[in-house]
């Protein structure tokens, strides 16, 4: 049913070896009032795979991620995570969300808590980790992402890039099977984008399964095993970066990429692919 059937131990475009199916979305529909936002999304993501969703604002990228996390109730379709259907009637939503991390465009850190408390809240209250253990694990994670010195600071004392990295650490502290990133660099000053993308790159290397909605085409081309181009609530094109960027099948994909180039937001691998075709 999925567009890109995945078998165990395949090799992704990024060179990582992929595992079993991590996420399967079938016939997903979602609307807000009269506005039909998602019109039958099918998508399969393998373990260790990185899938980037691209598309214009309003094409449904964020809504899709929020539906996978069940922050938005869906109208029709199925979402299966690690072989378990999470859209069934008697799914424990809180249970499912533990396994799916999401990082938001506006960070959404808790402003009344220090960074370390932001990170340890869910492990302590949801996973019932002892306070000392949660604290140590959080510090290890913060150190890994260069934030251990900011552990006792409040979010408003951190730069945008540091806040977003803290938000990523907070999601990772729950040891999710799947990480969803919702335009996490869109709210950042340009000079802070790189430090956040570097974190994502490291996560990809370490084998984290990720679905990333992004406007950073260069980054998407570098990191993704697959690119999905969304338009008006449908996945119009789905393939490895070299194909989607270098030889888009759909005219509308080409138009979108052309607009992106004109706005000067193209860089890295994706630009190389595109230049080849011109």
């Amino acid at each position: 049913m999925g567009r890109c059937p995945v078998k165990g131990s395949a090799i992704g475009a990024s060179g990582r070896s992929l595992g079993d199916e991590a996420l399967r979305i079938e016939g997903l529909y979602k609307s807000f009032g009269d506005l039909q936002v998602l019109k039958g999304i099918d998508l399969v993501v393998a373990e260790h795979e990185v899938v980037c969703l691209i598309g214009a604002s309003g094409s449904g990228k964020s809504t899709l991620l929020r539906c996978v996390n069940l922050l938005e109730p869906i109208e029709a379709g199925r979402v299966v995570v690690e072989g378990e259907e999470i859209t069934g009637r008697d799914t424990n939503l809180d249970h499912v969300r533990r396994r799916i991390g999401i990082v938001f465009q506006a960070y959404n850190l808790f402003p009344h808590m220090s960074v370390i408390d932001n990170v340890t809240l869910a492990p302590r209250k949801v996973l019932r980790r002892p306070k000392a253990q949660a604290h140590d694990e959080a510090l290890t994670l913060l150190r890994r992402f260069g934030l251990d010195e900011k552990a006792d600071q409040y979010p408003d004392r951190l730069s945008g890039g540091q806040q977003q990295r803290a938000a990523i650490v907070r999601a990772l502290a729950m040891e999710p099977d799947l990480l969803l990133l919702d335009e996490i660099t869109s709210a950042l000053d340009p000079e802070l984008v790189a430090e956040v993308l570097e974190v994502i790159r490291e996560l990809a290397v370490s084998g984290m399964t990720m679905v990333i909605a992004t406007h950073e085409m260069g980054f998407a081309g570098d990191i993704a095993d697959r690119i999905c181009f969304l338009e008006q609530g449908q996945i119009l094109e789905d393939g490895p970066p070299s194909q989607v960027f270098g030889d888009p099948r759909e005219a509308r994909t080409r138009e979108f990429l052309q607009r992106v180039i004109e706005s000067g937001r193209m860089g890295g691998e994706a630009a190389k692919h595109l230049r080849l075709t011109e």
Binding site: D94, R97, F104, A171
Partner: peptide, 13 residues
């Protein structure tokens, strides 16, 4: 509401 969304996405009830 994004604060609540962030909390729920971490698995908090």
């Amino acid at each position: 509401p994004s604060q609540n969304a962030a909390a729920r996405s971490l698995g908090l009830s």
